[in-house]
Nucleic acid binder design. Structure first.
Lengths: 185, 185
DNA sequence: CAGTCATAGTTGAGCGCTCAACAAAGGGCT
DNA sequence: AGCCCTTTGTTGAGCGCTCAACTATGACTG
């Protein structure tokens, strides 16, 4: 499947320019905010986002799995991240009484202080690099574009693809079912 | 400067939604293309971009420094990357005769084959995730938005910031000189 | 209830990136 | 020439991420 396509649908010159500009802008923006946070707050952006998510949660507590989903990271990544954050004293782990497999991540007061101290500088950096540069129309468009790309990537992207592949194999075993659509490609 | 701002200019709800959608979309898109390339071509996206840059160069040769600039990476990163690519037999290093500090990175035939094999799948993935999803207007806007953000980040972003800081110190020492312009690319 | 599969979370190895330190060579200036 | 500063490129340590195993618990079914 997909092994051979007679003629790949190459990008036009315009599309290529857009793609390269996009990649470049994203790379620079990411480097910029990453450096800013690392320098001013002593934490990488990924950890910042974990703390943000926790701080906005009802009691500053979340199940590890929910936190992983909320931050768009794998369980593994979150587990490593929380281990580091716990070592810094910013997060505390707690066992879940009703489901003994489960674990809660709990934002500590020190963690709350850390994010409170980090937020203004980070927001300022983001605002200066993005929202101060763009017109309101561009901001709105950026939101729509992002949402569209996100939506297009959601069904078949992460490990779900593997799952679909696995289900495909199963389906081949018991042959005809509705056979859904080929999610194209 | 920037040390204290009485009230941070927080993001509005709309801005926050846009920022989160953007971060999410970028993260997913990046993960998607990264996985695709790693799986189908056995190389990370950063190495792919190195090979692309080399393949588009007159004789498939570039100075390491120029290649670093072209790929938007640090010398260190490129050095590590080329070491790996050389181990794979995709790139060969050559000494520069006129500047004995210098080094050329030379795309090998095997490297050319590798990128030729990788390109269609990668382009298809990018097209499916981005250009097939967006209207022509959105594509155009994405280009403009990217270009704006890139431009806003160019002067003060990478290690230039350090340089500016250093020059600031110098400037304080000898006070006013002509203070040229940013050597606008 | 036993057997089986799914779910929650952790762990360690491997990899790419950053950062700071470094060696080697060029380019001025006196 | 000799000195100093810049530029080029490499190196090794440390860090975060991915991937594949693995443990342990829950949930479902005969």
């Amino acid at each position: 499947m997909m092994a051979r396509m007679d003629e790949p649908r190459w990008l036009s010159d315009d599309e290529q320019r857009v793609w390269r500009a996009f990649r470049e802008a994203v790379g620079m923006l990411n480097a910029h905010t990453e450096t800013q946070l690392q320098r001013d707050a002593g934490m990488p952006q990924a950890y910042y986002e974990v703390l943000v998510e926790l701080s906005e949660s009802p009691d500053q507590v979340m199940r590890m799995s929910d936190l992983a989903i909320a931050t768009g990271s794998s369980r593994s990544r979150l587990s490593h991240a929380v281990a580091k954050l716990e070592a810094k004293g910013w997060v505390r782990r707690e066992a879940c009484p009703t489901d003994k497999r489960g674990a809660f991540a709990h934002l500590t007061p020190a963690g709350f202080d850390a994010i409170k101290a980090a937020a203004p500088g980070h927001v300022e950096a983001v605002r200066a690099a993005v929202f101060d540069q763009l017109t309101p129309d561009q901001v709105r468009m950026l939101g729509e574009i992002s949402e569209t790309i996100r939506a297009g990537l959601t069904p078949q992207c992460p490990e779900v693809e593997r799952r679909l592949a696995a289900e495909d194999e199963d389906a081949q075993a018991d042959a005809g079912d509705g056979g859904d659509t080929g999610r194209a490609a």
